[in-house]
Each structure stands twice: as structure tokens, then as C-alpha cells.
Design a protein around this nucleic acid. Structure first.
Lengths: 174, 174
DNA sequence: CGAGAAGATTCATCTTTTTTGCCTCTTACC
DNA sequence: GGTAAGAGGCAAAAAAGATGAATCTTCTCG
């Protein structure tokens, strides 16, 4: 029983972005950090974006950031979204050639177990995964990267002082 | 996230044997019933035997039967024994090249979820999987098979009765 | 004791899924 | 317009899983 690397990386990307909430991170940067090919990571990030966990800003100075605060990103849901095939056994799918199908309790029993699994994850958010040490390991100071759009809100937050750009969306998410 | 067919078949074999507790079933018979090759099923059964769930009697008239009553066979343990690799993500294993290793809470979180999964299964026994319908579908009357050693415990279980033959066979014992 | 019926083992192959990377396109800032 | 970013399609490579053939061992029966 495995979770795909796909999901695994997705979670790590979220952790990375969570540890660097104060700035934008590019895929290039993350793939370098995790030693995965850029293109590969791209697909994973893509899925994260499509599912609304991450925001991607194109163009020069662009990058990635969490689409909402880490505390509002549930791990269970991430796994559900990223793990394409949660059918534990064949008979979970519609079609089955097992002669027990229909009378078999196995499906229900495994289904309950799966619910327990995901339920357990549902009680955790990305914020719970972010320990102080992680911040230390992963967080890269803005200076080391250079200032980016993230830090100069083009559309600008009214108050100005806040450096957590949670609501600085500067374009229409199509 | 999948359970291997290996484990799936193992559970089905147990169900089959549970539905036919009153007699011995051969691998040949089961493999025919499930439309799997004999050799393949053999390996699975073998593992079940080594793990003490099933008893295999060799020689003419031999076959398989549950090593203990269905109610004493826990599904969680079966899955644990059959599923070779329960490491959900890479960092479950000793070696890991993830730069988060050590500080990452992901492992613990997934570990808890896995425990919840198996724990759910631990609350079920093989007996719970055996619905009356299954008995009907799977149970093959002794007549249809021919009498076997099963009912004359020459080798095994001198104590005899144990829990099994509520279903008295038409054959003379010993 | 010998034959045949069962399970036990080994080995090789095939299939499917997963993982990976390349190449090209689109978008958007500067 | 140039360049830096993400988006997407294609396909190769690798790993894991599933399957089957052939052979060996053990055991009961006659």
C-alpha cells in the first residue's frame, strides 16, 4: 500500500510554500531544492493550482504561493485530490469480475478503513505539518533571492505594512 | 493508493475457505473458481499457511482449511501480513533523501492515518466478512466434491470436533 | 513399497503503473 | 519586444506487480 510520489511531492511543495509564505517561490527553485526535474514538478504544481491550493503568477518575477493560509489547507483533501486512484481493490470500481461482488462485505469493510485513513488526515492541516525546524531548513530569506513581485504588491494592500500577501491577487484567475 | 491483488486474493481465499469450513478445498478448485492460475494462487496460499491462517494437508485427499475459526482471524492482521510494503511514503523506510527528513511531521501524520486504517480493519474478523449470501454462493456441498480426508481427521486435529462440523457430513467418521 | 495427489519452490516473462524528462506553447511582466 | 515564468503534450525509462511453466517434495492410499 503506497501513496504515489506524486502526492508525496505535492505535500512537500505545500510544505515548502508554507515555510516561505512571505515570498514567491519558482518551480525552478523548488525542483532544485528537492532534486526533481522541473518539468515533472511542474505537473504536480499544476494540479495543485487547478485544485486551488496554490496560486501561480506568470511572467517575469512570477512564482508560486499558497492560495490560502496553511491552516485552512486540509491534508486529507489534498491526498484525495492528488491521489488519482483511491480504489483499494478491484471491486471498488464499477466493473468487477469477482464472483463475490454483490454479496461481499469486503468492499464495505475496506471502504470504512479508507474513510478512517482519510478522516485521520482530515484532522490535520498544512499548518500542523510546519514545525519551527522546517521553517528554518526551508525558509529562504528574501535577500537571497532578490525582491520579487510578491514583496511589492502592484495592486498594493491598502494598509501597506502587512507583508503577508494573502490577498494581493493582481489578476483575474481564469 | 492500492492494496495489492496479492492481498485481495488472500482475503478471498480466506472467505472461500470460511464458507466451506466443513470440508477441505484444494488450490486447484479455488483457482478454478476465481479464474486465477493455480501456480499463482499457490504462492498466496503458501503465505497464508506460513502465517498460520490456513492449514494445508498434502497427499491424496488433501487440501486446505482454515487453521482457526473465522471469528478469530482478524482482517487487519491479514492485511499487515500479506501486504509486503506498508511504507506509505519514502521516508517511512530507513533511508531517505528528502531534505525534510528529521524535521518533517508528515511521516508521523501519515503513520497515524495508517494506524487508523489498520485499526479499522482490526475491528473486523473473517466471520464478519461471511454473509449468508456468500455461504450460498461459495459453499460447495460435500457430495459435489466427493468425500475427503477432511472429515476423517487421520493426521490433523485429533481432538476432532473443535467448532466445525455443525454441518454433519453423510460420511462415517474414521 | 510404489503411484499418484496434493502442496512447495524456483525461474522466467509479461503487463501495468509510476516516474521522469524533452520539447513546444502560452502568458504576462518590464 | 524580450524574457521569465507557468501549461501541456509526448514518450522513454524504470519499477513494481501479476502470471505462468516446470520441477521438486511430501504425504496418503492401495
Amino acid at each position: 500500500m503506497h501513496i504515489t510520489l506524486h502526492t508525496d511531492y505535492a505535500l512537500r511543495v505545500l510544505i515548502y510554500l508554507g515555510a516561505n509564505e512571505h515570498r514567491l517561490a519558482t518551480i525552478q527553485e523548488i525542483s532544485g531544492r528537492f532534486e526533481v526535474s522541473r518539468s515533472h514538478l511542474m505537473k504536480i504544481v499544476n494540479q495543485l493550482i487547478r485544485n486551488g491550493y496554490v496560486e501561480g503568477l506568470r511572467g517575469k518575477g512570477g512564482g508560486l504561493r499558497l492560495a490560502r493560509p496553511a491552516a485552512r489547507i486540509g491534508i486529507g483533501q489534498v491526498v484525495r485530490d492528488m491521489e488519482s486512484d483511491l480504489a483499494l481493490v478491484e471491486c471498488f470500481a464499477g466493473e468487477s469480475r469477482c464472483l463475490l461482488t454483490g454479496s461481499c462485505r469486503l468492499r464495505a469493510v475496506l471502504g470504512n478503513a479508507l474513510d478512517a485513513f482519510l478522516g485521520s488526515l482530515d484532522r490535520q492541516t498544512l499548518a500542523d505539518l510546519l514545525s519551527p525546524q522546517q521553517h528554518e531548513i526551508l525558509r529562504v530569506p528574501v535577500d537571497a533571492i532578490g525582491n520579487r513581485r510578491a514583496m511589492r504588491p502592484t495592486t498594493a494592500v491598502a494598509g501597506g505594512g502587512e507583508n503577508r500577501p494573502e490577498n494581493t491577487v493582481d489578476r483575474d484567475p481564469v
